[in-house]
């Protein structure tokens, strides 16, 4: 027990560079595996949360642009969404990494972009913006006509009408699908350290450590179930938090009219 506490002290923050520098090399205990894989989860959460929050704004913009009449707005948004939804995230990571590497060699400013914390975050941000943009676009098109007409009748136009009528309804309609997108993005963060971006000083994410243990022990039956446990736990957290927001978005509606969340992740990107 006390050995495990020591392990927690040494390795709980290993993935962000606090604590013991050397990874255990042999005789891995269960405790070490649980703690280090949990430590890696910090990166998954970091990528997930930041990409989701920044991506949310771009996604709203993309949805509005894709629904616009003006082809100068619509076409770029359509192409952007097709580019990121039509190609594998894995290849996007690779391309972005080597792209930043090329930029770095000519312009010094791009130095941090080749590190995972920034470069991979940018890719995930653009990627989730494209996927959620498509979700929001679908929701935007199913905003009830009556709502918009009522807003017109009240004399609301332009930005106030969008902010107070269309946008909240769009969010409400899109929320169940957006919850799935959040889960799915969170799962996709495991790709980062397998796609070119180097894990500096072996500070990787949860899957990085899990595969480290699987390689070293040649026993996949311990680290991967631990990883699965963490992910199921955090998936439940996401479902819970998004459920609270969903309740707030739907608070003016009677029970049956509320949009319900169904676990339906988009699988893989």
């Amino acid at each position: 027990m006390s050995a495990c506490l020591q392990t927690i002290q040494d390795y709980a923050l290993r993935s962000i560079g606090i604590g013991e520098r050397l990874l255990p090399r042999s005789d891995f205990t269960l405790c070490e595996q649980v703690v280090l894989i949990g430590s890696g989860m910090i990166w998954n959460i970091y990528f997930g949360i930041f990409a989701l929050i920044i991506g949310f704004f771009l996604a709203t913009g993309l949805a509005v642009a894709k629904g616009a009449q003006n082809p100068w707005l619509r076409k770029p948004a359509e192409w952007f969404i097709f580019l990121f939804r039509g190609s594998p995230l894995f290849i996007q990571f690779f391309f972005a990494y080597f792209f930043f590497l090329n930029l770095k060699s000519s312009i010094e400013f791009f130095d941090p972009f080749t590190a995972a914390w920034l470069g991979a975050l940018i890719v995930l941000f653009l990627n989730t913006a494209a996927y959620s943009g498509e979700i929001f676009y679908g929701a935007l098109r199913s905003v009830p006509k009556g709502d918009v007409e009522a807003a017109d009748a009240y004399g609301l136009t332009g930005w106030p009408r969008f902010k107070r009528i269309i946008w909240p309804t769009m969010l409400r309609l899109a929320w169940p699908a957006y919850t799935n997108e959040a889960i799915f993005l969170f799962h996709a963060t495991t790709l980062v350290y397998f796609s070119g971006f180097p894990a500096w000083q072996q500070r990787g994410d949860a899957l990085y450590y899990a595969s480290y243990f699987a390689d070293k022990t040649f026993n996949p039956f311990v680290p991967y179930p631990i990883l699965a446990g963490y992910f199921i736990l955090f998936t439940l957290v996401i479902v819970g938090v998004f459920g609270l927001i969903n309740r707030r978005l739907n608070q003016h509606l009677p029970g049956e009219a509320r949009a319900k969340f169904q676990f339906r992740p988009n699988l893989l990107r």
Binding site: L207, F218, P220, F231, L267
Partner: peptide
């Protein structure tokens, strides 16, 4: 189970597990 866990984890897991 397959749907609740990141798919890459499954890919990495099954290749070793099946072989063994």
């Amino acid at each position: 189970i397959v749907r609740g866990v990141p798919d890459i984890a499954f890919f990495l897991f099954f290749v070793i597990a099946l072989d063994q």
